[in-house]
Amino acid sequence: MLDRFDLRILETLQERGDMGPIEMSQTVHLSSSQCSRRMQALRKAGYIKSVRAVLEPSKISVGLQAYVLVTMKSHSPTAADAFRERLLGIDEVLQCQKLTGASDMIIKIATRDLETFNQVLTRELLGAPEVANAQSSIILEDIKSTSSLPLNYASMNP
């Protein structure tokens, strides 16, 4: 079970994953050794999957991001595994989630421009033998984008 200090550490790390125990101690109001111990325990317990840098797309020439809704031809394990392997090999695929409803998956793609997006879409997705249909929507404006999860659902010690 988590306590309020653990939740504050997790909340802070979601915003600033590069924060060390000394800086964390000033934010959480615990000693740096306590923060270090708690941060290690949270990692060991699996609360923290990984820590990554969030890059600015325009600085690395990523000018287009889009979502693609995919409908599969078959839901067989063989087709699903083949498509999964295909997606894992495409650098431009940022995310892929299985869905309920009319579409089977939603895929987020990042490319340099519309021409590059069209190549990825036609060659990699529409060209895949497992795909029956794909509908794309280009992101015009990034209004809110976060990987931070809401911590108000976490089980907490009283």
Rank of each mutant, 00 (worst) to 15 (best):
D18L: 01
D18P: 00
M19S: 04
M19V: 09
M19A: 11
G20A: 09
G20L: 05
G20P: 06
G20C: 09
P21H: 04
P21E: 07
P21L: 03
P21C: 07
P21G: 13
I22H: 03
I22A: 09
I22R: 08
I22F: 05
I22Y: 06
M24K: 02
M24C: 11
M24A: 14
M24E: 05
S25L: 08
Q26M: 06
Q26R: 12
Q26E: 13
T27A: 13
T27F: 07
T27P: 00
V28S: 03
H29N: 11
H29Y: 15
L30N: 06
L30G: 02
L30E: 14
S31C: 07
S31D: 05
S31T: 15
S33R: 13
S33G: 02
C35G: 08
C35L: 06
C35Q: 06
C35V: 12
S36R: 15
S36F: 15
S36M: 10
S36T: 00
S36L: 15
R37T: 09
R37H: 11
R38D: 12
R38P: 04
R38F: 13
R38I: 04
M39L: 14
M39P: 00
Q40F: 15
Q40I: 08
A41V: 01
L42I: 02
L42R: 10
L42S: 09
L42H: 12
L42F: 12
R43H: 07
R43K: 10
A45T: 02
G46V: 11
G46R: 04
G46E: 07
G46P: 02
Y47G: 02
I48V: 12
K49Q: 12
K49A: 11
K49D: 15
S50I: 00
S50E: 15
V51S: 15
V51L: 15
V51F: 14
V51M: 14
A53H: 14
A53F: 10
V54R: 07
V54N: 04
L55N: 09
E56R: 11
E56I: 08
E56G: 00
P57H: 06
P57T: 05
S58Y: 07
S58L: 08
S58T: 12
S58D: 11
K59E: 14
K59M: 10
K59T: 13
I60P: 01
S61M: 10
S61I: 02
V62L: 12
V62K: 04
G63Y: 12
G63S: 11
G63C: 10
G63M: 09
L64F: 03
Q65Y: 00
Q65K: 01
A66D: 01
Y67T: 02
L69Y: 14
L69G: 01
L69T: 00
L69M: 08
L69R: 01
